[in-house]
Amino acid sequence: MSSVLTPAEFYQRDRRVHPPAYSPVYKTSVPRSPNQALLTIQQTASEITGPTFGHNDFGPLDNDLTLNFNHGGLPVGERIIVHGRVLDENGRPVPRTLVEIWQANASGRYRHKKDVYLGALDPNFGGCGRTLTDDTGYYFFRTIKPGPYPWLNYVNTWRPSHIHVSVFGSSFSQRLITQMYFEGDPLIPHCPIVATLPDRAAVDRLIAPVDLNAAVPMDCLAYKFDIVLRGRRSTLFENRLEGN
């Protein structure tokens, strides 16, 4: 028996759909972007494996941001559901993968010791949630719509409402963090971080449409956000024996 992992590579990442590391419109990227070309490698066991998570890791309210930081009431803001599927580039669902989100509250304030924006903290809103996708790759969160907030890129720069989204997939090479924006937000075309994206199609892939079919009448609106991770070869390479 060979102890060699059968290489089942993920498709190479198409860097053209992602923001370049060096994006002067987003000033902080200037000193934090590598200048040298990334090293090209063929994936090994270290890249085609990654952490796994089980239901034991989670609590029942982890995906409900309207309840998971309850200190005697509900958070202020528009109640929304954010839901969708995690798929790979082949269109296959990515089951039982960890999705984590974090966001500002309705005032545009983050619950973080380094955020000093004068927008008020909400005693009933923490701003983070997590869940595992089900067997069909589906996930959902209940939360409130985050507010826009100012930040110093240019002197008068504002972030559109957004939710940060972190996804694992089944391997370390699929790891992805992105941001979800809201359909119709007038700040999207003005945002330097949005402007790091290479084209309009990339921006559109990050804008969640309102989804009335998933709204709960008299309770909360819904936005739909599908996430696509790198796909994987379906034809495996021959597993050659050690030493060959």
Partner: peptide, 9 residues
């Protein structure tokens, strides 16, 4: 094929 979701900081 679907297109990978773009990254953001």
């Amino acid at each position: 094929y679907l297109v990978e979701t773009p990254s953001q900081t």
